[in-house]
Protein backbone atom coordinates (compact mmCIF):
# COMPACT_ATOMS: atom_id res chain seq x y z
CA UNK A 1 0.00 0.00 0.00
CA UNK A 2 1.42 3.33 -0.98
CA UNK A 3 0.39 6.69 0.43
CA UNK A 4 -0.04 10.07 -1.15
CA UNK A 5 3.26 11.76 -2.06
CA UNK A 6 4.05 14.55 0.42
CA UNK A 7 4.13 17.17 -2.33
CA UNK A 8 0.56 16.36 -3.37
CA UNK A 9 -0.57 16.52 0.24
CA UNK A 10 1.08 19.88 0.84
CA UNK A 11 -0.26 21.46 -2.35
CA UNK A 12 -3.70 20.02 -1.56
CA UNK A 13 -3.56 21.36 1.99
CA UNK A 14 -2.56 24.82 0.77
CA UNK A 15 -5.38 24.73 -1.81
CA UNK A 16 -8.04 23.91 0.78
CA UNK A 17 -6.77 26.54 3.23
CA UNK A 18 -6.61 29.16 0.48
CA UNK A 19 -10.13 28.29 -0.64
CA UNK A 20 -11.48 28.42 2.91
CA UNK A 21 -9.80 31.72 3.73
CA UNK A 22 -11.04 33.18 0.44
CA UNK A 23 -14.55 32.11 1.41
CA UNK A 24 -14.26 33.84 4.81
CA UNK A 25 -12.98 37.00 3.13
CA UNK A 26 -15.58 36.88 0.33
CA UNK A 27 -18.51 36.79 2.77
CA UNK A 28 -16.88 38.86 5.52
CA UNK A 29 -20.14 40.59 6.30
CA UNK A 30 -21.52 37.22 7.39
CA UNK A 31 -18.35 35.75 8.89
CA UNK A 32 -16.49 38.58 10.61
CA UNK A 33 -18.86 41.46 11.34
CA UNK A 34 -21.72 39.79 13.31
CA UNK A 35 -19.52 38.44 16.16
CA UNK A 36 -17.90 41.86 16.54
CA UNK A 37 -21.31 43.52 16.87
CA UNK A 38 -22.63 40.84 19.25
CA UNK A 39 -19.58 41.09 21.51
CA UNK A 40 -19.76 44.89 21.52
CA UNK A 41 -23.32 44.58 22.81
CA UNK A 42 -22.18 42.14 25.50
CA UNK A 43 -19.56 44.65 26.64
CA UNK A 44 -22.01 47.54 26.65
CA UNK A 45 -24.84 45.70 28.41
CA UNK A 46 -23.17 43.15 30.69
CA UNK A 47 -19.83 44.85 31.13
CA UNK A 48 -20.57 48.52 31.22
CA UNK A 49 -24.18 48.80 32.45
CA UNK A 50 -24.70 45.71 34.63
CA UNK A 51 -21.03 45.03 35.37
CA UNK A 52 -20.69 48.27 37.35
CA UNK A 53 -23.27 47.02 39.82
CA UNK A 54 -21.60 43.59 40.07
CA UNK A 55 -18.27 44.93 41.21
CA UNK A 56 -15.16 42.72 41.31
CA UNK A 57 -15.06 39.11 40.24
CA UNK A 58 -12.09 36.85 40.88
CA UNK A 59 -10.26 39.93 42.13
CA UNK A 60 -10.76 41.82 38.86
CA UNK A 61 -13.04 44.50 37.52
CA UNK A 62 -16.02 42.58 35.97
CA UNK A 63 -15.27 43.89 32.49
CA UNK A 64 -11.68 42.62 32.71
CA UNK A 65 -12.88 39.29 34.09
CA UNK A 66 -15.46 38.85 31.34
CA UNK A 67 -13.26 39.94 28.39
CA UNK A 68 -11.26 36.66 27.99
CA UNK A 69 -14.49 34.66 28.18
CA UNK A 70 -16.13 36.74 25.46
CA UNK A 71 -13.09 36.49 23.21
CA UNK A 72 -13.04 32.72 23.70
CA UNK A 73 -16.78 32.48 23.11
CA UNK A 74 -16.46 34.30 19.79
CA UNK A 75 -13.55 32.06 18.76
CA UNK A 76 -15.52 28.89 19.63
CA UNK A 77 -18.67 29.89 17.76
CA UNK A 78 -16.77 31.26 14.75
CA UNK A 79 -14.46 28.28 14.24
CA UNK A 80 -17.33 25.83 14.71
CA UNK A 81 -19.65 27.83 12.47
CA UNK A 82 -17.08 28.19 9.72
CA UNK A 83 -16.36 24.50 9.27
CA UNK A 84 -19.90 23.27 9.79
CA UNK A 85 -21.33 25.64 7.18
CA UNK A 86 -18.48 25.31 4.68
CA UNK A 87 -18.22 21.51 4.89
CA UNK A 88 -21.97 20.93 4.89
CA UNK A 89 -22.41 23.37 1.99
CA UNK A 90 -19.81 21.41 0.01
CA UNK A 91 -21.51 18.14 0.88
CA UNK A 92 -25.02 19.44 0.19
CA UNK A 93 -24.15 20.96 -3.21
CA UNK A 94 -22.00 17.98 -4.14
CA UNK A 95 -18.69 19.76 -4.61
CA UNK A 96 -17.13 17.92 -1.69
CA UNK A 97 -16.78 15.19 -4.31
CA UNK A 98 -14.05 17.30 -5.90
CA UNK A 99 -11.89 16.39 -2.90
CA UNK A 100 -13.23 12.89 -2.32
CA UNK A 101 -12.32 11.72 -5.84
CA UNK A 102 -8.86 13.28 -5.63
CA UNK A 103 -5.79 11.56 -4.17
CA UNK A 104 -5.87 13.78 -1.05
CA UNK A 105 -5.67 11.86 2.21
CA UNK A 106 -8.40 12.21 4.81
CA UNK A 107 -5.98 14.05 7.11
CA UNK A 108 -5.33 16.74 4.51
CA UNK A 109 -9.05 17.30 3.98
CA UNK A 110 -9.54 17.55 7.76
CA UNK A 111 -6.56 19.80 8.46
CA UNK A 112 -7.32 22.09 5.51
CA UNK A 113 -10.83 22.76 6.76
CA UNK A 114 -9.69 22.99 10.38
CA UNK A 115 -7.13 25.60 9.38
CA UNK A 116 -9.92 27.58 7.70
CA UNK A 117 -11.90 27.43 10.95
CA UNK A 118 -8.87 28.49 12.96
CA UNK A 119 -8.19 31.45 10.67
CA UNK A 120 -11.77 32.67 10.98
CA UNK A 121 -11.74 32.05 14.74
CA UNK A 122 -8.54 34.03 15.15
CA UNK A 123 -9.73 36.82 12.88
CA UNK A 124 -12.93 37.18 14.87
CA UNK A 125 -10.98 36.82 18.15
CA UNK A 126 -8.63 39.61 17.07
CA UNK A 127 -11.53 41.93 16.21
CA UNK A 128 -13.27 41.19 19.50
CA UNK A 129 -9.97 41.91 21.29
CA UNK A 130 -9.82 45.28 19.55
CA UNK A 131 -13.43 45.92 20.61
CA UNK A 132 -12.44 44.94 24.17
CA UNK A 133 -9.78 47.64 24.21
CA UNK A 134 -12.49 50.27 23.77
CA UNK A 135 -14.06 49.16 27.08
CA UNK A 136 -11.19 48.02 29.29
CA UNK A 137 -7.43 47.59 29.49
CA UNK A 138 -6.00 44.19 28.64
CA UNK A 139 -2.66 43.34 30.19
CA UNK A 140 -1.77 39.88 28.93
CA UNK A 141 -0.06 37.89 31.70
CA UNK A 142 0.93 34.72 29.82
CA UNK A 143 0.74 35.41 26.07
CA UNK A 144 2.07 32.02 24.95
CA UNK A 145 -0.44 30.14 27.10
CA UNK A 146 -3.27 32.39 25.92
CA UNK A 147 -2.31 31.90 22.27
CA UNK A 148 -1.86 28.12 22.63
CA UNK A 149 -5.25 27.71 24.33
CA UNK A 150 -6.87 29.86 21.66
CA UNK A 151 -5.39 27.93 18.74
CA UNK A 152 -6.07 24.50 20.25
CA UNK A 153 -9.64 25.43 21.17
CA UNK A 154 -10.30 26.74 17.67
CA UNK A 155 -9.00 23.44 16.29
CA UNK A 156 -11.21 21.40 18.64
CA UNK A 157 -14.35 23.27 17.62
CA UNK A 158 -13.45 23.27 13.95
CA UNK A 159 -13.32 19.48 14.12
CA UNK A 160 -16.56 19.41 16.09
CA UNK A 161 -18.13 21.47 13.30
CA UNK A 162 -16.85 18.98 10.74
CA UNK A 163 -18.36 16.04 12.63
CA UNK A 164 -21.67 17.90 12.78
CA UNK A 165 -21.50 18.58 9.02
CA UNK A 166 -20.69 14.96 8.21
CA UNK A 167 -23.75 13.66 10.05
CA UNK A 168 -26.07 16.49 8.95
CA UNK A 169 -28.58 15.66 6.26
CA UNK A 170 -30.35 19.01 6.06
CA UNK A 171 -29.65 22.61 7.04
CA UNK A 172 -31.68 22.25 10.25
CA UNK A 173 -29.15 19.67 11.42
CA UNK A 174 -26.32 22.20 11.41
CA UNK A 175 -28.34 24.68 13.46
CA UNK A 176 -29.52 22.27 16.19
CA UNK A 177 -26.13 21.47 17.74
CA UNK A 178 -24.98 25.12 18.07
CA UNK A 179 -28.36 26.16 19.48
CA UNK A 180 -29.05 23.32 21.89
CA UNK A 181 -25.60 22.09 22.90
CA UNK A 182 -22.85 24.56 22.04
CA UNK A 183 -24.54 27.74 23.27
CA UNK A 184 -25.67 26.31 26.66
CA UNK A 185 -22.24 24.77 27.29
CA UNK A 186 -20.57 28.08 26.41
CA UNK A 187 -22.84 30.19 28.61
CA UNK A 188 -22.38 27.70 31.46
CA UNK A 189 -18.64 27.46 30.77
CA UNK A 190 -17.57 30.29 33.04
CA UNK A 191 -17.64 33.08 30.45
CA UNK A 192 -19.61 35.40 32.77
CA UNK A 193 -18.83 34.05 36.22
CA UNK A 194 -16.39 32.13 38.36
CA UNK A 195 -17.54 28.68 39.46
CA UNK A 196 -16.62 29.65 43.02
CA UNK A 197 -19.97 31.53 43.05
CA UNK A 198 -21.87 28.30 42.39
CA UNK A 199 -23.18 25.86 45.02
CA UNK A 200 -20.91 22.81 45.36
CA UNK A 201 -23.17 20.55 43.32
CA UNK A 202 -23.30 22.92 40.33
CA UNK A 203 -19.61 23.76 40.62
CA UNK A 204 -18.85 20.02 40.54
CA UNK A 205 -21.18 19.48 37.59
CA UNK A 206 -19.47 22.32 35.72
CA UNK A 207 -16.25 20.29 35.77
CA UNK A 208 -17.85 18.00 33.14
CA UNK A 209 -18.18 20.93 30.76
CA UNK A 210 -15.09 21.02 28.51
CA UNK A 211 -15.66 24.66 27.61
CA UNK A 212 -15.05 25.58 31.27
CA UNK A 213 -11.44 24.39 30.84
CA UNK A 214 -10.95 26.32 27.61
CA UNK A 215 -12.40 29.57 28.92
CA UNK A 216 -10.44 29.34 32.17
CA UNK A 217 -7.25 28.32 30.38
CA UNK A 218 -7.53 31.40 28.21
CA UNK A 219 -8.48 33.60 31.16
CA UNK A 220 -5.37 32.39 32.96
CA UNK A 221 -3.30 33.37 29.93
CA UNK A 222 -4.84 36.86 29.81
CA UNK A 223 -5.39 37.95 33.41
CA UNK A 224 -3.61 35.19 35.32
CA UNK A 225 -6.59 33.76 37.26
CA UNK A 226 -8.53 30.56 36.65
CA UNK A 227 -11.01 28.20 38.33
CA UNK A 228 -9.08 25.30 36.79
CA UNK A 229 -5.38 24.46 36.92
CA UNK A 230 -3.70 25.28 33.63
CA UNK A 231 -2.41 21.70 33.40
CA UNK A 232 -5.95 20.33 33.61
CA UNK A 233 -7.10 22.86 31.02
CA UNK A 234 -4.44 21.75 28.51
CA UNK A 235 -5.08 18.07 29.26
CA UNK A 236 -8.82 18.38 28.57
CA UNK A 237 -8.26 20.42 25.41
CA UNK A 238 -5.73 17.91 24.07
CA UNK A 239 -7.98 14.94 24.90
CA UNK A 240 -10.83 16.48 22.91
CA UNK A 241 -8.45 17.45 20.11
CA UNK A 242 -7.25 13.87 19.69
CA UNK A 243 -10.74 12.42 20.14
CA UNK A 244 -12.31 14.68 17.53
CA UNK A 245 -9.39 14.31 15.11
CA UNK A 246 -9.65 10.51 15.21
CA UNK A 247 -13.43 10.70 14.85
CA UNK A 248 -13.15 12.99 11.81
CA UNK A 249 -10.58 10.71 10.21
CA UNK A 250 -12.63 7.59 10.86
CA UNK A 251 -15.76 9.17 9.38
CA UNK A 252 -13.98 10.46 6.27
CA UNK A 253 -11.94 7.30 5.76
CA UNK A 254 -15.03 5.09 6.00
CA UNK A 255 -17.13 7.57 4.06
CA UNK A 256 -19.80 7.65 6.75
CA UNK A 257 -22.30 10.36 5.88
CA UNK A 258 -20.34 11.17 2.73
CA UNK A 259 -20.56 8.15 0.42
CA UNK A 260 -23.47 5.97 -0.76
Amino acid sequence: MSGVPLKIQLVGFYTIVRKEVSRVARIWVQTIVPPAITMSLYFVIFGNLIGRRIGDMGGFDYMQFMAPGLIMMSVITSSYGNVVSSFFGAKFQGYLQEMLVSPLSGWVIILGHVMGGVVRGLAVGAIVTVVTLFFTDVDVKHPLIAFAVLILTAMVFSMAGMINAIFAKKFDDIAIIPAFILAPLTYLGGVFYTTSLLPDFWAGLSKFNPILYMVNGFRYGIIGVSDISIGSAFAVILIFLVLFALTCYYLIHRGIGLRD
Binding site: V4, I8, G12, Y14, T15, K19, M99
Partner: peptide, 10 residues
Protein backbone atom coordinates in the same frame (compact mmCIF):
# COMPACT_ATOMS: atom_id res chain seq x y z
CA UNK B 1 -7.53 25.88 -10.22
CA UNK B 2 -8.70 24.31 -6.96
CA UNK B 3 -9.18 20.94 -8.61
CA UNK B 4 -5.61 21.12 -9.92
CA UNK B 5 -4.49 21.83 -6.36
CA UNK B 6 -6.32 18.76 -5.03
CA UNK B 7 -4.21 16.69 -7.42
CA UNK B 8 -1.00 18.29 -6.18
CA UNK B 9 -0.31 20.60 -9.11
CA UNK B 10 1.43 23.77 -7.82
Amino acid sequence: MNQAGYYGIP
